[in-house]
Amino acid sequence: LRQRHVACLARSERGLGFSIAGGKGSTPYRAGDAGIFVSRIAEGGAAHRAGTLQVGDRVLSINGVDVTEARHDHAVSLLTAASPTIALLLEREAGGP
Rank of each mutant, 00 (worst) to 15 (best):
L1I: 14
L1R: 06
R2S: 06
R2A: 08
Q3H: 08
R4Y: 04
R4K: 10
H5E: 11
H5Q: 11
H5V: 15
H5S: 09
V6A: 09
V6C: 11
V6W: 13
V6H: 08
A7D: 03
A7I: 14
A7Y: 07
A7E: 06
C8P: 03
C8D: 08
C8N: 15
L9A: 03
L9C: 06
A10H: 13
S12M: 11
S12Q: 12
S12T: 15
E13C: 07
E13W: 05
R14N: 11
L16Q: 05
L16M: 12
L16H: 08
L16F: 13
G17F: 03
F18K: 01
I20L: 08
A21T: 14
A21Y: 06
G22D: 03
K24A: 10
K24Q: 07
K24N: 09
K24R: 10
G25Y: 06
G25C: 07
G25N: 08
S26Q: 09
S26V: 14
R30T: 08
R30C: 10
R30E: 08
R30I: 14
A31I: 12
A31Y: 14
A31W: 13
A31V: 15
G32S: 09
D33G: 07
D33E: 15
A34G: 13
I36M: 04
V38R: 01
S39N: 12
R40G: 14
R40P: 01
R40W: 13
A42N: 13
G44H: 10
G45S: 13
G45V: 05
G45L: 08
A46Y: 06
A46C: 11
A47K: 05
H48Y: 11
H48V: 15
R49H: 13
R49E: 11
R49A: 12
R49V: 14
A50S: 12
A50C: 12
T52G: 09
Q54N: 11
Q54D: 05
V55A: 07
D57Y: 01
R58H: 08
V59M: 05
V59S: 00
I62L: 01
N63C: 04
N63I: 00
G64S: 06
G64E: 07
V65D: 05
V67W: 00
V67H: 03
T68A: 07
T68C: 06
E69M: 10
E69D: 13
A70V: 08
H72N: 08
H72V: 08
H72C: 10
D73H: 07
D73A: 09
D73V: 06
H74M: 14
H74S: 10
H74I: 14
H74F: 14
A75E: 04
V76T: 09
V76I: 13
L78F: 05
L79K: 03
T80M: 12
A82R: 12
S83M: 08
S83I: 11
S83L: 08
P84I: 03
I86T: 11
I86W: 02
I86M: 09
A87H: 15
A87K: 15
A87N: 14
L89C: 13
L90K: 02
E91L: 03
E91M: 04
E91C: 03
E91S: 06
E91F: 01
R92D: 00
R92V: 00
E93A: 09
E93H: 10
A94W: 13
G95D: 12
G96M: 10
P97E: 14
P97N: 13
